Simulated assay, not measured.
Amino acid sequence: MEWRTVVVIVLVVSLCFFMIPIKVEPDKNVEDVKLFANYVDQYNKSYKNDSAEYKERFERFQKSLRHIEKMNSFRTSQESAYYGLTEFSDLSEDEFLQRTLLPDLPLRGQKHTTASYYHRHFTNSVHRVKRVTGIPSKFDWRDRGVVGPVQNQESCGACWAFSTIGVAESMYAIKNGTLYPFSVQEMIDCMPGDYGCQGGDICSLLSWLLISKISIISENAYPLTWRTDACRLSKTSAKTSGAKITDFTCDSFVNAESELLTLLVTHGPVAAAVNAISWQNYLGGVIQYHCDGSFNYLNHAVQIVGYDTSASIPHYIIKNSWGSTFGNKGYIYIAIGKNLCGIANQVSSLDIV
């Protein structure tokens, strides 16, 4: 027997007596299949028995899983935003944009930047938020009982109406001491132009309410249907009953977020246009990264109801309209100071009687 052969045999036998750790990656596809089956059941997806769509949705679901892993890898603390499966996780990013958000919001919003009610605020530094004086380090209008429950816009693209009416309810409660539910559906049906569930914007709605002197009536009198219907207001009742907008602003606080904090404390909750494309799989925590603040990427409308600069990550408290099971009981937290998600691009406050 040649010496080379002897050496090989000895090496092979020797290896049998040693534990050599070999890392075997789990089969992600098998895990993903199980996760998807549970996901379809949990959210009662309609394509459960449609094999073609099931396969297609599974592929998009897998992309969401990989994206969730990537987003969670950026977490720097326990307070950082974390991501996981939501009812939107079987959508492509483009589907999420088209079905849930407002792709044309920048075009709708741009026309307001030259209006008399538009103001651009400036301060020396947006990073001096912690040293803002004259206002508390933490403020939340929910603690004062003037913020209504989180609503769900479902498949109706009327975030512009939900956010505006939510702020109107809060401002009425601050002034009159009673939290009174107003009609979102009235705005969806009666706002002139190509709005309804097909999309709109906060500033146009407030401008129409002010100029027309239209009254905002109660939710009970004009309940939500989640679709665009014919307006059911008569010309006389529209101007005689309910609450009315007496003034509003539609401002930019880019590079002036400390002034936005002051407005929240001294005036009340505000409605804001945001870029929510990265929220598809959001579960909670404070968003700090990967949420573009460009005006051109605005696609959703929300309410800002408070802030906390005493937290390890100073943040806004955002009331959304995707139901109480999304995010943190329907709320989202966005870090202050960098115009994350475009939160400071177009912010509206209002007065009401």
Rank of each mutant, 00 (worst) to 15 (best):
H127M: 06
R128D: 13
R128M: 13
V129W: 12
K130L: 15
K130A: 15
K130Y: 14
K130P: 15
R131V: 14
R131K: 12
V132S: 03
G134L: 08
G134F: 10
G134T: 14
P136S: 04
P136K: 06
K138N: 08
F139N: 05
D140A: 10
D140H: 03
W141E: 04
W141R: 06
R142E: 01
R142D: 01
D143A: 11
D143R: 04
R144E: 14
G145T: 10
V146F: 09
G148W: 00
P149I: 07
P149F: 05
N152Y: 03
N152K: 03
N152P: 01
E154V: 14
E154F: 15
S155A: 11
C156D: 01
G157D: 00
G157C: 02
G157Q: 01
G157S: 08
W160G: 06
A161D: 03
A161Q: 03
F162M: 04
S163P: 05
G166I: 07
G166S: 05
V167W: 00
V167E: 09
V167S: 02
S170T: 06
S170W: 02
K175W: 06
N176Y: 14
G177E: 12
T178R: 14
T178F: 13
T178L: 11
L179N: 09
Y180P: 07
Y180Q: 07
P181C: 03
F182K: 03
S183C: 07
V184I: 04
V184G: 02
V184C: 04
Q185H: 05
D189L: 10
M191F: 13
M191A: 10
M191K: 12
P192G: 07
D194E: 13
D194C: 10
Y195K: 11
Y195A: 15
Y195S: 12
G196E: 09
G196L: 05
G196A: 02
C197A: 00
C197V: 08
Q198N: 15
G200K: 07
C203V: 10
S207Q: 01
W208R: 01
W208A: 10
L209M: 09
L209I: 09
L209H: 00
L210Q: 05
I211G: 01
S212K: 09
K213W: 03
K213G: 13
K213Y: 14
I214G: 06
I214W: 06
I214Q: 14
S215T: 06
S215M: 05
I216E: 02
I216V: 15
